[in-house]
């Protein structure tokens, strides 16, 4: 699985200062949320696609793995097309589709796709540690907020997300091979899925906590060093411009 994983390359995006990248991510995320007109999408997607190429990520493999989300996007579009009230489309073979529904569905799908592409670019080019260090850097000035601890949690969550997801798939497969789908009672079905998942996750948590302690875990730790180049600032400026363009 390459989706949402760091893929090591040596490009300007990979080298970018984590703090600026985090800010750029925030601007772009806002842009995705506010996009509504066709030209908004055109600009945002062009910039994102350039970033994808610039980062030299394996585009074909990534698109293939986004299939899961593709189905989701499709469902949302269809649901919207049928349920949003409005003018019916003339000569449409499907009764009950409204123009407004299709437009709303497309907008929604566009936003979702944008967020996904954005995360692919960011997670693919940013080592988790640099991300974590940037988060810690932003949180440090806040009083009463244990920045180091939040950073550790951030790191662990993303480190173990794929592991737990694999675990979940394995449990599903094991249950399906024992014909869980024949069980009609939804309480039992959910139970059989969640019990092993929680049990294994808690066990794993215990072991990780021991392993971290054995290696002397401390919240007073070596601080990351940051350095930003002009290119980094340029990229931040581009994302700010995209956001402003979409907003107005």
């Amino acid at each position: 699985m390459t989706l949402f994983h760091y893929i090591h390359k040596d490009t300007v995006l990979h080298r970018m200062d984590g703090r600026l990248k985090l800010a750029a991510l925030l601007f772009f995320g806002l842009a995705a949320g506010f996009s509504s007109e066709f030209h908004d999408y055109l600009v945002a997607f062009s910039v994102l696609f350039c970033a994808l190429l610039l980062a030299r990520l394996p585009v074909a493999a990534l698109l293939k793995e986004m299939g899961f989300f593709g189905v989701l996007i499709l469902i949302v579009m269809v649901v919207n097309a049928f349920t949003i009230p409005g003018e019916p489309i003339p000569n449409s073979p499907f009764a009950g589709i409204s123009q407004q529904g299709v437009i709303t569905g497309l907008r929604f799908a566009g936003r979702l796709l944008m967020v996904l592409l954005l995360s692919v670019v960011v997670t693919g080019t940013t080592p988790l540690a640099r991300f974590r260090d940037a988060v810690e850097w932003y949180l440090r000035p806040f009083p009463f907020l244990p920045a180091a601890r939040v950073a550790t949690m951030f790191n662990l969550t993303f480190l173990l997300l794929p592991v737990i997801l694999d675990n979940f798939k394995e449990i599903m497969a094991a249950q399906n091979s024992r014909c869980v789908q024949l069980r009609k009672n939804p309480v039992k079905r959910l139970k059989y899925l969640v019990f092993p998942l929680l049990d294994q996750t808690l066990r794993r948590a215990d072991e990780i906590a021991y392993a971290m302690e054995a290696r002397g875990y401390s919240e007073v730790r070596t601080r990351a060093t940051f350095k930003s180049t002009k290119t980094d600032w340029l990229m931040l400026a581009i994302s700010l411009l995209v956001f402003l363009f979409v907003l107005f």
Binding site: M153, L156, T157, I164, T201, R204, A205, M212
Partner: peptide, 18 residues
């Protein structure tokens, strides 16, 4: 104890995401 709870909290966040 704090470390343990930190690890638990992070893993539960992962579960919520999943």
């Amino acid at each position: 104890m704090n470390l343990r709870m930190t690890v638990y909290a992070a893993l539960f966040t992962a579960l919520i995401i999943i």
